[in-house]
């Protein structure tokens, strides 16, 4: 997957979890929690979906690294670029 495809994959998950959210205007460098109404259960949901859809296993201590879109794509890149 290219970084653009990884970004789109995350957007797809976000829109499934929070359909009412405006994702078109998401700022990739601002934390998700500051622009979307995501709570800690939502973050857990994103992790579960990433595992279900792309088989990437993110350890609990790394959850905090998925705070912005830019950081999330960078974190996922090594696992997903071969897909």
């Amino acid at each position: 997957m290219t970084n653009e495809e990884i970004r789109q994959a995350v957007i797809d998950i976000l829109s499934d979890i929070s359909p009412e959210e405006d994702l078109e205007n998401l700022d990739d460098n601002t934390p998700f929690r500051d622009q979307l109404s995501l709570d800690s259960m939502d973050v857990m949901d994103i992790i579960l979906e990433l595992r279900k859809r792309y088989r990437v296993n993110i350890p609990e201590e790394d959850y905090g690294k998925l705070d912005t879109m830019t950081n999330t794509v960078a974190y996922l890149e090594p696992s997903l670029k071969e897909m």
Binding site: M41, M44, I47, L48, R51, K52, R55, N57, I58, P59, E60
Partner: peptide, 20 residues
């Protein structure tokens, strides 16, 4: 309900690890 989901998430991660 929420804790059931949180733990399921950990179990799912464990299962994937085992498969690996």
């Amino acid at each position: 309900v929420n804790y059931g989901f949180i733990v399921a998430n950990n179990v799912d991660a464990f299962m994937l690890d085992q498969k690996g």
